[in-house]
Simulated assay, not measured.
Amino acid sequence: MKKILVTGATGQLGSELKVLSRTYSQFEWIFADRTKVSLDDLKVLQNQLEVISPNIILNCGAYTAVDKAETEQELADIVNHLAVAVIAQYAKDNSIKLIHISTDYVFDGTSSIALTEEATTKPINVYGASKRSGELACLKVNPDAIIIRTSWVYSSFGNNFVKTMQRLMQERQSISVVNDQIGSPTYAADLAQAMMTIVTAPEWISGIYNYSNEGEISWYEFALAIKEIGGYTCEVNGIPSSAYPTPAKRPAFSLLDKSKIKKTYGVSVPDYTESLKKCFELLT
């Protein structure tokens, strides 16, 4: 029985993979949090991988505190870059499959058309730069790896935009949400399914792939969809990013083109409203 190691097991994507694992009982699953797989301690990490001895690694673990990364550059780089290099090297040395999760934040946000996997990368914050360094390190030491870039991840697990909006819309009479950052949300359950479609595919075709739900929206429009599905009466106001300054800059446009993953692996990509409704059912 092949053994799948999931890093970042308590995060949104790791938690969704845990739910999904019940339908993939042909595998032995190892769900590792930071105590089992230490992405911030490279020497320990190497030993942990050898002890676990997986056949497949789904690297969902990451440093994702985008604003905090601006002042914790070294830690972000260790987790998102150097640890990825260690995992990629281990996968290469042991001829095992690796899917590594990356982000739309590797782009600078100046595009006006959906970004393909070949689009020029130019991160505008520390988090994005650390994730891009991780991509480059991964592909350099292990060209056989698969990298999936995703965006605006939410789930019924963990902390995310959907849950925050639900809470605020019930607590307040009005809220403000930025309306000039464009992209598409990703329901982590859909991404987990896409990963397993790749893992169980008859052919392994390495490289970078994009995955997010269908739709081109702003965070403001995402909030309006949450309001509508939830039946909330809270007033939602659109504001420019300049009115809501954050330590880390965000890309103004980071819509991902999903053609490659659909064509190569036949992955289905639901519309964001369809997936948002599914998540709501689990949260209410």
Rank of each mutant, 00 (worst) to 15 (best):
M1A: 11
L20A: 03
R22G: 15
T23S: 15
S25M: 11
Q26F: 11
Q26M: 10
Q26D: 12
F27A: 09
W29M: 08
I30F: 14
I30A: 14
F31I: 08
V37P: 05
L39P: 03
L39N: 03
L39F: 02
L39Y: 05
D40E: 15
D41S: 10
L49H: 05
I52A: 06
P54G: 08
N55M: 11
I56Y: 04
G61F: 01
Y63V: 01
T64K: 13
D67G: 08
D67Y: 04
K68R: 13
T71W: 10
E72H: 10
Q73W: 08
E74Q: 15
A76W: 01
D77L: 14
V84K: 02
A91D: 00
N94A: 04
L98A: 01
I99D: 01
T103S: 03
Y105P: 08
T116Q: 07
E117V: 00
E117F: 01
E118F: 13
T120K: 15
N125C: 04
Y127T: 01
G134N: 00
L139Y: 03
K140Y: 10
S151P: 04
W152S: 07
Y154C: 03
F157M: 06
F157Q: 05
N159W: 14
N160L: 06
T164N: 13
M169A: 04
M169R: 05
Q170A: 14
E171R: 10
E171M: 12
R172Y: 14
S174E: 15
D180S: 05
Q181K: 12
I182G: 06
S184H: 01
A194E: 01
I198V: 10
V199E: 04
A201D: 12
A201Y: 09
A201R: 09
W204F: 09
I205C: 13
Y209A: 07
N210T: 02
S218N: 07
S218H: 06
W219F: 15
W219H: 14
Y220L: 06
I226A: 10
I226V: 15
I226F: 08
K227Q: 10
G230Q: 09
T233S: 15
C234I: 07
I239D: 05
A243H: 11
P245S: 05
A248E: 01
A252G: 11
L255I: 07
K258Y: 10
K262C: 10
K262M: 13
V269P: 01
Y272A: 01
Y272G: 00
T273Q: 08
E274Y: 10
S275G: 07
K277N: 13
E281C: 09
L282H: 11
L283M: 12
